[in-house]
Computed example of a mutant assay.
Amino acid sequence: MSTHVQKPGWFTVKIFNQAVGWLTGRGISIWGSRVLAVRGRKSGEWRTTPVNLLTVNGEQYLLAPRGHVQWTHNMRAAGGGELRLGKNVDVFTATEVADDDKVELLRAYLKRWKAEVGVFFKGVGPDSPEADLRRIAPDHPVFRIAVTK
C-alpha cells in the first residue's frame, strides 16, 4: 500500500477547512461538502473533517485527495462513520475500493473538484490517459459509502 500523504498547510487548516466546516455544519453544502465524522482508531473519540461527497452512477464515495491521511486510517479501522450536513446526519458503512476500480472515480472527482484539489494529483487531470489515473490510484484511498440510517 502507498504511504503517500500531503499534509495541509496553515491556510487550509486554519481558514479554508474551518470555513467549509462552519458552513457545512449549518446546512450549507459547498459543491457536495459534508463533515465526515469517524471514530479515532486509537482514542475511539469522534474526529471530524470536511470532505467532498462524490456520486457516480447512483453510488456515493469519499476520495482522499491528500492521500493516506488520518481519516482514511480511521475509516479502515471503524468501517464507517457519519456524514453531516447541518442537522442531517447520515450513518454509513464504508468499503474501500480496489486500485483497479478507481479510474472512473478519480476522473469524476477531478472533473468536479480539480480547481480545488488538482495540485494533489501529480499533474493528472480529468482528461489524462487511463494509464496516468491508474498510476496515481494507490496514492488516493476511495471508500464506497452505504447509508444505513
Rank of each mutant, 00 (worst) to 15 (best):
24 T>D: 03
82 E>M: 10
94 A>E: 01
61 Y>E: 02
78 A>G: 03
86 G>P: 10
119 V>H: 10
69 V>M: 11
147 V>E: 08
25 G>T: 03
98 A>R: 04
147 V>R: 13
109 Y>I: 07
21 G>Q: 03
30 I>H: 12
106 L>D: 01
47 R>K: 07
24 T>S: 08
102 K>T: 06
141 P>Y: 00
15 I>H: 10
98 A>K: 03
126 P>V: 15
73 H>K: 13
43 S>Y: 04
2 S>E: 04
45 E>M: 11
142 V>K: 05
149 K>Y: 06
43 S>L: 04
27 G>N: 01
99 D>Y: 00
128 S>L: 15
131 A>W: 06
19 A>Y: 03
67 G>Y: 05
68 H>K: 07
86 G>A: 15
41 R>Q: 08
111 K>V: 04
74 N>P: 05
14 K>Y: 13
28 I>P: 13
44 G>N: 11
76 R>C: 09
142 V>N: 00
91 V>N: 03
8 P>L: 15
143 F>A: 07
45 E>V: 06
103 V>W: 05
65 P>L: 04
60 Q>A: 08
89 V>L: 12
15 I>C: 13
52 N>L: 15
26 R>E: 03
143 F>R: 00
27 G>S: 09
142 V>T: 01
134 R>S: 12
77 A>L: 03
128 S>E: 15
136 I>W: 02
2 S>I: 10
50 P>A: 09
106 L>W: 06
36 L>Y: 02
67 G>R: 01
10 W>F: 15
33 S>G: 10
114 K>V: 08
37 A>F: 05
116 E>T: 12
58 G>V: 09
49 T>P: 00
107 R>F: 14
59 E>I: 06
23 L>W: 05
20 V>L: 06
43 S>E: 05
97 V>I: 12
80 G>N: 05
71 W>Q: 06
32 G>E: 11
13 V>Q: 12
38 V>A: 03
30 I>Y: 13
148 T>N: 09
148 T>M: 08
129 P>F: 05
75 M>V: 10
87 K>M: 15
68 H>E: 10
142 V>R: 00
96 E>Y: 02
47 R>N: 02
145 I>L: 08
27 G>Y: 05
8 P>H: 12
19 A>H: 02
77 A>G: 05
142 V>L: 09
128 S>N: 14
148 T>Q: 13
12 T>E: 11
21 G>W: 10
109 Y>G: 05
70 Q>M: 14
72 T>H: 12
39 R>C: 04
22 W>V: 07
31 W>Y: 10
14 K>W: 14
81 G>E: 00
145 I>F: 04
59 E>S: 13
145 I>G: 02
134 R>Q: 15
46 W>F: 02
45 E>S: 06
135 R>I: 07
